[in-house]
């Protein structure tokens, strides 16, 4: 989609009335469009081209790219560095910040750094315990929790100060996000936990993988009863399962992901399990879209990133909309950009 005042790729958008950030992602949501986000797993290298290669597979199918912060407590390139690389070419990264590895001093420093490097969106997470990852002997930090992290980002943006009260010279303009997991106990607490996150500052929500529509429907009923869908944008997490075996592995090793037996047996009985996984994901997106109060989907396809384009395309959720990507401006907006540049001169 196009905004009349779209600047040169990588430059921040003007902040419209009623908006909080300079980002494209917030614009899409506030324009009432069904948004699609995805997830990029930072590489274990020092190769910036690899980062761009990883991002490119999503071109023209996603509105924003989450950059994971040591996901599953495994060590990778930092989410801040990858987000900064992505902003350079105009992508709209969502900087994931986990409380597991850094205390409030480090986190606030990174937030200022991220905003300076053009990051407009931040997702505040508690983070998996260190035991889940490749350095189980590490010291878990958890100085803040996700709710107080949300509050911290909000304080920095609204009061232009650190958590300590010390003033900032300029405030980071973040669109603030939080996670939610409606699929694990205590179920009745989950909507209230969401309310708490919204009260603390969350403006968009990205949920854990949804493989259980009934549970989601129940949750969204409770969320609507509390009026929470009007106070934030809720994006539901989905993703393709590569096989029944990988579903089993995720069940056992990834905290918080619930995969019902029905899904596993459906994969088992399929001829091509990978295709079936993609099919399930597409069906899931189409069902999710029908639920009132859902503002988009978050497609997580770890090690199957190339399938995201197909999934989004086949699901039809973008309708005729083409999300921004670096090539779009080169071709479609060539003359317009030239005009803008002339105006600047």
């Amino acid at each position: 989609m196009y905004f009349y005042d779209e600047p040169i790729p990588g430059a921040p958008l003007p902040i419209l009335p009623g908006h909080v950030s300079n980002g494209r992602f917030e614009r899409v949501l506030r324009a009432g469009k069904f948004a699609v986000t995805t997830e990029l797993a930072p590489p274990d290298s020092v190769d910036r081209n690899e980062v761009y290669r990883l991002a490119r597979v999503f071109d023209s199918y996603v509105d924003a790219i989450n950059v994971t912060d040591g996901s599953g407590a495994n060590c990778h390139m930092s989410s801040l560095a990858v987000s900064a690389l992505l902003t350079r070419v105009g992508y709209s990264p969502i900087l994931q910040v986990s409380c597991r590895d850094r205390n409030r001093i480090a986190i606030q420093g990174d937030l200022l750094g991220g905003a300076t490097l053009g990051v407009s969106n931040v997702l505040c997470l508690t983070g998996d315990g260190v035991d889940a990852g490749d350095h189980p002997e590490a010291k878990p930090v958890f100085d803040l929790d996700s709710v107080s992290l949300l509050g911290t980002v909000k304080i920095m943006r609204e009061r232009s100060s650190f958590l300590s009260g010390r003033q900032l010279d300029s405030a980071p303009r973040f669109f603030i996000g939080a996670s939610a997991n409606p699929f694990v106990p205590p179920y009745d607490y989950r909507p209230l936990r969401l309310k708490k996150k919204i009260d603390a500052g969350a403006e968009f929500i990205q949920s854990q993988y949804c493989f259980d529509i009934d549970r989601l429907v129940t949750y969204m009923n409770q969320v609507r009863d509390l009026g929470l869908d009007k106070r934030c944008f809720i994006l539901v997490g989905v993703g393709p399962l590569a096989s029944a075996r990988s579903a089993g592995w995720i069940r056992d090793h990834v905290p918080g992901v619930v995969i019902p037996d029905a899904i596993v047996s459906r994969l088992l009985s399929a001829k091509d399990q990978r295709r079936e996984g993609i099919k399930i994901c597409i069906e899931m997106i189409q069902q999710i879209r029908e639920i009132e109060g859902v503002a988009g989907v978050h497609v997580m396809a770890y090690r199957q990133e190339e399938s995201v384009a197909e999934i989004v395309k086949t699901s039809g959720v973008l309708e005729d909309r083409v999300p921004w990507h670096p090539q779009r401006d080169q071709f479609a907006a060539g003359p317009r950009l030239a005009e803008e540049k002339n105006e600047c001169n």
């Binding site: 508690t126 958890f142 996700s146 997991n181 607490y189 603390a200």
Partner: peptide, 27 residues
Amino acid sequence: CPKQLQNGPCGGVRIDSMCEVDGSMRC
């Protein structure tokens, strides 16, 4: 809480209500 969460359960709670980090303890 192994993560010392002050504001509610994390998203890692097991389906049987046990803690993500310490499976022998209820969340």
